[in-house]
Write a protein that binds this DNA or RNA. Structure first.
Lengths: 194, 194
DNA sequence: TGCGACCGAATGAACGTTCAATTAAACAAT
DNA sequence: ATTGTTTAATTGAACGTTCATTCGGTCGCA
């Protein structure tokens, strides 16, 4: 067991998690480095041992969070199921990830609509790009979906799921499998080949 | 003709427009008051003649922009048309507003995902609430749509249109009536009663 | 003894906001 | 019309605060 690596990871992870929580709560400019340090129980200077600047901290947090999202979406992937079933599984996984990780969802939405996304378009999760986007591309190629550009499809799906998750969270509603399926049905009905 | 009123409006409007452009370009914290003042050709102090603080400037800009969006959506409203036709008109109007006002679209998206929206939920466009949300509510009550909570319906529709507008803008594609209708069809197919 | 992890006070730049001074406009009296 | 008076609009340098970042030093392990 490499203790040094553990320490490395634990402080680094604490900083990332604190950034996620504080950015969600107060926005990018409302989450100063001093507060992030305090929340993560490290000194302000320690952050700069792991990250070059606040900017790179945010960008690396984005990639890590999107990686986590991709992993959550891909969980229980079963090649033997029908495309529609796999699509529903993807959507429900994504929805559940948002419900269970509100800070992650809010952060991702903030990031996408911030100048960061425009300034570092190449900084993104490789896992998400290959597996998730790839799956949607297969749906278009396989004639399950309308002939939509996949770059349009992704944000469309995300928009609906985020809207639904935001709504459920704001209403403090209790988790219900039917609710989720209803929302996914909206997405599916919209984009499937009629 | 009231010259005083003209001057009042012109400086105030210049400040609002500059804020819109700079926030779109650099984000909330990347658009300092000094830069907004310079861009609007006024002194820094002048901003505080019209707005109490940067916070209220942003909130008032949000309300004004959403009012403009509502007006654009309602343009050419024809009660004699079918609900579906009116819905398509609404959607196409909204889409066109986004395409023609990219800074407004980006600003609205940033605002919705910022702490402002959570801190001042009551600060919003009355016109939008009454006319646009009201129209969607009528669609649910009149059994044109699935039985969806209207608070879920709004963001769902917005998410798709914004995704589409963002995509068209990023690709610098030429305006095409068919493209728009295709996107609106996705929304309609998703939420209409099957 | 050396080295990387870590600390936190210090730094200087940038920011939102203020305010005393200036100019322009509106109004009143003549 | 002219002048004097009041009010509003505008300015930009100055202020105090906050912020991201730095750096000299401490600690603990190899």
């Amino acid at each position: 067991m490499n203790v040094q690596l553990n320490n490395f990871n634990s402080k680094r992870e604490a900083i990332l998690n604190s950034t996620l929580v504080l950015v969600k709560e107060y926005g990018f400019h409302g989450a100063p480095m001093s507060q992030i340090a305090k929340h993560a129980n490290v000194a302000a200077g320690t952050i700069y041992h792991y990250f070059d600047s606040k900017e790179t901290l945010i960008v690396e947090l984005y990639i890590r969070t999107k990686d986590q999202l991709a992993e959550a979406i891909l969980e229980g992937y079963d090649e033997s199921k029908s495309y529609k079933d796999r699509f529903f599984k993807f959507m429900i996984n994504q929805y559940n990830f948002y419900i269970q990780n509100e800070p992650a969802m809010v952060f991702l939405e903030q990031y996408i609509n911030s100048p960061f996304a425009k300034n570092f378009p190449e900084k993104d999760s490789i896992l998400f790009k290959e597996k998730v986007i790839g799956f949607f591309q297969a749906g278009i190629d396989g004639d399950y979906f309308k002939k939509i550009d996949p770059r349009l499809l992704g944000p469309t799906i995300r928009g609906t799921l985020v809207a639904a998750a935001n709504f459920r969270l704001s209403e403090h509603m209790i988790y219900s499998e039917e609710d989720i399926t209803e929302v996914v049905q909206i997405v599916w009905d919209g984009i499937k080949r009629q």
